[in-house]
Amino acid sequence: MRSAGHLGGRNSTGGTSAVRALLIAGPTASGKSALALDVARRRNGVVINADSMQVYRDLRILTARPTKEEEAAAPHRLYGHVDGAVNHSVARWLADATAVLSEVEAEGRLPIFCGGTGLYFKALTDGLSDIPAVPDDVRAAVRAACEGRETPELHARLAACDPASAARLRPSDRLRVMRALEVHAATGRSIAAFWDTRAPGPLSGDGVEKVFLAPDRAEIRARIDARFLAMMEAGTLDEVAALAARRLDPMLPVMRAHGVPGLIAALEGRMSLAEAIAKGQADTRAYAKRQVTWFRNSMPGWRWVEAREARDWVTP
């Protein structure tokens, strides 16, 4: 793997490169947050969350949000600012992120976007499709019709009314299949028609450093398993119990965070705690694999760095 060089180093003509923003992505447990904090402290930066689960205030431990001590060491934004009852979306995140980006730039600080949600980074650089908002009553009707039905059945229903988007979605991707059904119900149009039209993102163009931390596969699997056990010791079962007590819609993103379904099942006696832990670890490992595959296939132009080399990449 080629060396990543240094942030803000010298370019090929000998001049100093100007960095407008730094994007740090990678699979879960790859060391993104530690690197972002290191850069923020060295470069007068602000760490801005780009992880779809770390936006929720209900799950600080289970989603590995920065600790209070880490947040005190450098400014952090868009962490834990959304209630679990909210069906947060990439569009809402992009609106928040764009506002924060303007504030950070006005302060003369370096914006450091850090996370593992590929669609958030893609929205930053490539923009979002202009999909109309789905009225609440339409969304509720679609969800009621989908309740109790297996995801492949919903995908087949989507294929019948919107074959173009069904062909581009995995039959197991329940959230996006339901989103496509909602958009079709609200507009009568395929969501794929909106995907293909988008305005540039707020960080399109030059001056953006993009790095993907790519740890060894065996190493990341071991880290994930160990971290999940550490989370259990830190009190994540109590955290999930408090979330379960809210009786939220099980289709909400926060209720589908890796570890939540299994731990709720354990709390309700439908699964042993050991089984729930193993499920949480396995689901997280599978997610990390998908993150790597998605970035490799969907995000050209990113610099891939071995996690252990990342600190050398930061200018002292």
Rank of each mutant, 00 (worst) to 15 (best):
residue 220 I to D: 02
residue 253 P to G: 06
residue 177 V to F: 12
residue 148 G to P: 02
residue 114 C to Y: 12
residue 101 L to T: 06
residue 213 L to T: 11
residue 289 K to P: 09
residue 290 R to Y: 04
residue 110 L to M: 00
residue 195 W to Y: 10
residue 198 R to Q: 08
residue 251 M to D: 15
residue 193 A to Q: 11
residue 313 W to K: 03
residue 277 I to Q: 15
residue 14 G to F: 04
residue 164 A to R: 03
residue 70 E to A: 15
residue 192 A to I: 04
residue 77 R to W: 12
residue 195 W to F: 00
residue 197 T to S: 11
residue 123 A to N: 10
residue 107 E to C: 08
residue 111 P to R: 12
residue 144 A to G: 09
residue 156 A to E: 15
residue 44 N to L: 03
residue 76 H to G: 04
residue 288 A to V: 14
residue 109 R to V: 06
residue 310 A to G: 06
residue 299 M to C: 08
residue 42 R to M: 11
residue 260 V to Y: 03
residue 31 G to W: 05
residue 197 T to P: 02
residue 8 G to F: 05
residue 47 V to K: 13
residue 91 A to V: 13
residue 150 E to N: 03
residue 218 A to Y: 03
residue 200 P to A: 10
residue 238 D to K: 13
residue 137 D to V: 09
residue 61 I to Q: 04
residue 285 R to T: 03
residue 97 A to R: 01
residue 21 A to F: 08
residue 3 S to L: 12
residue 190 S to G: 06
residue 308 R to N: 13
residue 248 L to E: 06
residue 34 A to L: 05
residue 131 I to T: 12
residue 181 L to D: 04
residue 113 F to E: 02
residue 299 M to T: 08
residue 136 D to H: 09
residue 56 Y to P: 01
residue 263 L to A: 13
residue 84 G to R: 04
residue 84 G to M: 01
residue 306 E to G: 07
residue 44 N to E: 15
residue 1 M to I: 12
residue 215 P to Q: 04
residue 83 D to P: 06
residue 179 R to E: 10
residue 21 A to W: 10
residue 48 I to K: 02
residue 177 V to T: 15
residue 5 G to F: 01
residue 175 L to G: 06
residue 307 A to S: 15
residue 271 M to A: 07
residue 246 R to I: 11
residue 204 S to Y: 09
residue 66 P to L: 08
residue 71 E to M: 15
residue 163 P to F: 04
residue 70 E to G: 09
residue 37 L to Y: 09
residue 50 A to S: 08
residue 305 V to R: 06
residue 313 W to H: 04
residue 108 G to P: 01
residue 111 P to Y: 13
residue 83 D to N: 07
residue 159 A to E: 11
residue 38 D to M: 05
residue 181 L to K: 12
residue 276 A to L: 14
residue 264 I to A: 13
residue 156 A to Y: 08
residue 154 L to C: 00
